Amino acid sequence: MTTPIARPDLSRNSHPAASDPSDSAAQLERLIGIMIRLRDPETGCAWDRVQTHETIAPFAIEEAYEVMDSIAREDWESLPDELGDLLLQVVYQARIAEESGRFSFADVARMIGDKMVRRHPHVFAGETLDADLWERNKQAERNARSEHGILAGIAPALPALIRAEKLGKRAARVGFDWDTPEEVLEKINEELGEVRAELPGGDKARLEDEIGDVLFTVACLARKLGLDPEACLRQGNAKFTRRIETMEAVLAESGNTLSDLDLAAQEALWREVKIRLAALAQGH
């Protein structure tokens, strides 16, 4: 049986001063209470009542990326709101689990607290810090969960580019890696050759397989250079967006759009905009 949680007063946002540490506990209690009300089978929200672990899981990923976006833009005013959206997903999942008697929010908080203490014995137990301590502790946890093998614990549901970087990093720990970035570049060229070989046949499954090899190897090149492949791609996306939006702005001055230009004219404008933006970036 799940122990009932007393409902706090949700009618007003009264709390101690922001500097009071008890305020965090009070506001978290209020949020948990709000979720209990929303999930009430009789008086709750019709949408919230029917959600399941599976239906709301995608929102956690979306909210995490919105947090990342606020940080990347250094939008500190919106960051608390985005962090709140992410926290709501944890409270939501915990409430659904508690209704089924699986676990509660308290279990979630206790487990992550215990994990942080366990992984930081140099802080909480007076042990000497060494470079491999974190990974040894994580490996011990994986062993306790009967997760064996060098790739154990890397979630399949991670975004593919992030997972590629993690898989390559984990394999590199046992020496299964290229020695230099130049060797990775050679491998990329080899994989691109295999894509070219498949182009005439047009077999989508085979092309998907070969392009996957290219993308995985590119992620490994970024890792080998000490770069985050996800951050590299975000930067590439942002650069492409700036150039397209600038092209559209240039054309709008004459009442035209990109679709009014043929490919040759689009490419000429692309080169012009590329030079213009590069000059702006250099302060010219």
Rank of each mutant, 00 (worst) to 15 (best):
L233D: 08
D260C: 09
L258Y: 04
D177A: 14
F216N: 13
E62V: 07
R142D: 06
V214F: 03
A97L: 09
E141A: 09
R234Q: 12
A222S: 14
R223Q: 13
D262M: 03
A219N: 02
D107K: 01
T246D: 01
R145A: 15
A17S: 08
P4Q: 06
K239M: 08
A106M: 04
T128L: 08
I150M: 09
Y65C: 08
A131H: 06
D69G: 05
Y65Q: 13
R170Y: 04
Q139K: 11
D130S: 11
A46I: 15
V91P: 00
L86G: 06
E208A: 15
H15D: 02
C45H: 12
M247Y: 01
A109H: 02
P4M: 04
L280I: 00
V218T: 11
D69Y: 03
E210V: 07
P159E: 09
Q139I: 11
A109N: 03
E245S: 13
L269R: 01
D228S: 15
A160G: 13
E141F: 05
C220V: 15
E253G: 03
L10N: 08
Q266A: 07
I162K: 13
V67K: 02
V67R: 02
T257V: 10
G126Y: 07
R170P: 01
S104K: 01
L263I: 14
V108Q: 01
I244S: 06
Q139D: 13
S146C: 12
T180N: 09
Q51M: 11
A278V: 00
L167Y: 03
E135F: 04
S14W: 04
L185F: 09
R206D: 05
G113W: 02
